[in-house]
Nucleic acid binder design. Structure first.
Lengths: 212, 212
DNA sequence: ATTCGTCTTGGGCGAGTGTCCAATTTTGAG
DNA sequence: CTCAAAATTGGACACTCGCCCAAGACGAAT
């Protein structure tokens, strides 16, 4: 067998995946073309159909892979969290870590819309998000949050919505959103005061004037 | 001048706008073509560039027009609302009124993503959503909701995120979401119990097993 | 040195794209 | 009836699209 040839092939394949991810956010799902992907990856156009069955197959694999990587990172980050508030902060910080228009988040939404027209893609994406929801719900359960699964589902969905709206609404700063979202997290003994288990780290991560 | 001719022209123009709106949700923003729009509108392809400067101009006008109409309807609906909970119910019901994949909501998201690549479109869309946010915030203020503007902004953004996720998560029913979202609406004297001004109409609109 | 498997090249195919425009039809105004 | 404005037609332009494939490149195995 050809160890080096196979290796180089794998590398080209991965460059194509990365190039496709960039182009999805830049041009939109249906706006990504064979030749544009090839050019950005530094290969010729013919290569694309050697490594992938079709452009749609390339886009689907790119999207699922990118989403899986991003959520896997989030899930391990959530494991090291000491309170429900901190879990919320972790999620918001992930969005915050990018500039005005986070390319990775845009890819998420492009993938959702593409899944609208591709049942196979829908199923693969559902699996990715189910895992993320479960990871967040587990944290919520652990810290006694009421209605943990439903709360986690709404929070995860809301994050995507907030991402879409951040360009449309200058007032949507991380700090503001955090203050609102934490209200939907309540604990059992929350009846007398709506206070949360940990309010100490209030403005801990708001040091930068982040506008996400 | 030609009154009837002008009238027919106006009608053709509006048919093009409606056809474009359908195709945006079916094929995605960048997947809409001159000829497809013309065919669905029942006119020849040349007409498109008689009534519109370009395909992008047609798409932008379609999106802004559709969004403006939808939000205007919502805004008047919100005016006749008697409590903050009822405002929430009104918004959720708007999403709920459509089947598995609401074509109008998908158009919203397609427009957001398109606005990512078109500053002019971004500005027009921002104006539409600012009005909707303000209408909701006014209701919240009227009924003593804490942090009204921020809460309204998060709710409106979350709605779009929930729309995207409803196909990915069978558990996201209207009733479940409502129960979670209402928690982020708190009033001044909410300190002793986290109860809301009106809890009477709890399951009022959940009669159908709606899955949105 | 020859064979083999893998990857890569570059060009070509038919179909589809946005946009334009001269010619034609429709229609109300003079 | 005549005429000009508005709306429409159908075809053409120069590209770009996804996909395919014969031909070559090149290191590894024999």
């Amino acid at each position: 067998m050809a160890a080096t040839a196979k290796e180089r092939g794998r590398e080209a394949r991965e460059r194509l995946l990365r190039a496709a991810a960039e182009l999805i956010t830049e041009r939109g799902w249906t706006g990504v073309t064979t030749r544009a992907v090839a050019e950005r990856a530094g290969v010729t156009a013919g290569i694309v159909h050697y490594h992938f069955d079709s452009v749609d197959a390339l886009l689907a694999e790119t999207a699922v892979g990118t989403m899986r990587a991003a959520t896997a990172w989030l899930e391990t980050a959530l494991e090291q969290v000491g309170s429900a508030d901190e879990a919320l902060t972790t999620l918001l910080a992930a969005l915050d870590s990018y500039g005005g228009n986070d390319p990775e988040s845009v890819l998420f939404v492009e993938a959702y819309l593409a899944a609208t027209r591709d049942p196979g893609l829908l199923e693969r994406i559902s699996a990715v998000l189910t895992d993320l929801r479960k990871a967040l719900a587990d944290r919520f359960i652990e810290h006694g949050i009421t209605d943990a699964e439903a709360s986690a589902a709404v929070v995860v969905a809301s994050l995507d919505g907030l991402m879409l709206h951040r360009d449309l609404n200058p007032a949507l700063t991380t700090g503001t959103v955090r203050a609102v979202l934490r209200r939907l997290l309540t604990t059992e003994q929350d009846g007398e005061g709506n206070r949360h288990e940990e309010t100490a780290d209030e403005g801990a991560r708001t040091e930068r004037g982040d506008r996400w």
